[in-house]
Design a protein around this nucleic acid. Sequence first.
DNA 1: TTGTACGCGTTATCAC
DNA 2: GTGATAACGCGTACAA
Lengths: 334, 334
Amino acid sequence: MFQIAPTIKDVARLSGLSTATVSKYLNGFSVKEQNRIKIESAIKSLNFSVNSLARGLKTNRTMTVGVLIPSLENIFATSIVSHIERVLQEHGYSTIICDYNGSAKLENAKFDFLMNRFADGIIIMPLGLSEEKVRNALEKDVPIISIDRPMKNRECDVVLADNMNASYNAVEHLITRGHREIGIICGPQDIYTAQERLKGYLRVHEDYGMQVDEKNIKYGDYGIQSGYDMMKSFIKESGRVDAVFVTNYEMTLGAVMAINEMNIRIPDELSFIGFDNQHLATVVKPNLTIVVQPIRQIGECAAELLLRRLNGDKTNHPAVYRLKTELHEGHSVR
Amino acid sequence: MFQIAPTIKDVARLSGLSTATVSKYLNGFSVKEQNRIKIESAIKSLNFSVNSLARGLKTNRTMTVGVLIPSLENIFATSIVSHIERVLQEHGYSTIICDYNGSAKLENAKFDFLMNRFADGIIIMPLGLSEEKVRNALEKDVPIISIDRPMKNRECDVVLADNMNASYNAVEHLITRGHREIGIICGPQDIYTAQERLKGYLRVHEDYGMQVDEKNIKYGDYGIQSGYDMMKSFIKESGRVDAVFVTNYEMTLGAVMAINEMNIRIPDELSFIGFDNQHLATVVKPNLTIVVQPIRQIGECAAELLLRRLNGDKTNHPAVYRLKTELHEGHSVR
DNA sequence: TTGTACGCGTTATCAC
DNA sequence: GTGATAACGCGTACAA
């Protein structure tokens, strides 16, 4: 009943050759034609496949890349990963995906797990990954690519969106449409993307010679509930602002809920710009104007960069790829 | 620069003990107190961690579970996985997540990948996984749990939602509210869940002595576009149906887009019931009445079942867990 | 309780 | 082109 996995030895025995020859065949070296046939038939009849644990132990390469994201329920993250995976797979790499459930502690643990499993490289959307771990990895020649936000120490390659200009352009869009009191729902200010997005808001005000009213800036936590709460508080201070810009997907979701609940007519009573996720934008009425991040490009760029690093190309390290966002116009801005 | 990973030998040398002792310590056996201290300090100063490849090679266990889903962008799937992961982690297991991008071929390849990496067990949302592979795995004592839909051969444990009754209850809700011409947008009829959901629709008609009009049944492909198309065609045959039930999340998304575009007033002109995803339901106006699947329970049940199997408990195999769905009432039904 | 010696399945280095 | 054999790092008899 319990079936023990066949090994190269078994294949060698069955085909009357040595393990060395079989191993060579398995690794793409040339073998005498008739031996090739023997080996192939032996493999088939034994249903043999190489033990990648043993192979990894020997070669120190596993042809596996680890991807670490905050949460599997973060659609932004998983979308990027699916592009990463596609590119890597085309180059013979498998992908192991882990999530750390928004916990820096778990993040560090999972990072260890991946290193331990001998991931040849790691792509991570970092939170509080210890700098030491990154340095360790780099020293062991395991390339690390950071996506969406830079690592604290900035010692590693990073691929991200141009958050500052994303925000700048969105708010500028509102300004050129005649809005003057523009509310913004930001993320936590200890998070890089949130800082950048606020910076864009501030800078465009400066460039247009507009005073920033502190009351127009509200801080959420990038979660649905906080988007809902902040939006509601904007609405309750009726008339304070004539437009609101929400700076991530989850908070956009919450803000729309609040708008619906309070029966605010968009864009007549209030203009609105959201973030990420085109599906959400087209499913609500009126269609939302939103900032769209270059999800596909982020994924592809990160994967290709990693592949270069895996091939020993260390030019330009640490590299920074800052990709442009787009403003998709719906009908939520007057 | 290039740092070679320390081994048990190194730890043994540094602590003046043998590899055997160190190994015992690492595996939780008791060691003399002063030796324990020596070992721990050696481990720390070397920054040692066990090579899990070597360990796995030796023990045939990796404490790793593979999870295989159709797509990372399938929020239903990833939500389940996040619950699976939480439970497994509490029991010392790591999780490797793979997606097969909706391709049965890739699905089989990734399954091999997981088996090959010595996943101790596998949880899969299957599409066209070869029965042979499943049997092979079971023979090698690697438990396989199917989620969301049963495997073709039905030889393996499965945890899923009660799709038939989900659909039955949704349509019954429409009937008791006075609807008689009820449209349904189904999934592809070669997919299990789609079959079951249609079955519920048919059965409730039967039970209420209502004739089923073939024209009220439209077949999509579970994708956004098809939900949009089918909904539009219902709308165009104006008056055909006075309610529409959409049977998965993506098609619900598409259907809502069509409704918005055609300016159909819900529920005045048309009653509507969607599927999955509470966020979508609360974000559109009016809030949608939807079928909610027991995502958390599916994940937890699958993980716990797998843990039992991993511990050698084979009672009741192949087990079937059919979990109840709920109908969340919004304001989209008249 | 501790140490020695060997095996796990594979690859790489030699000789042939 | 092929075959014998020494690693890779860990777990575990077995003996001490």
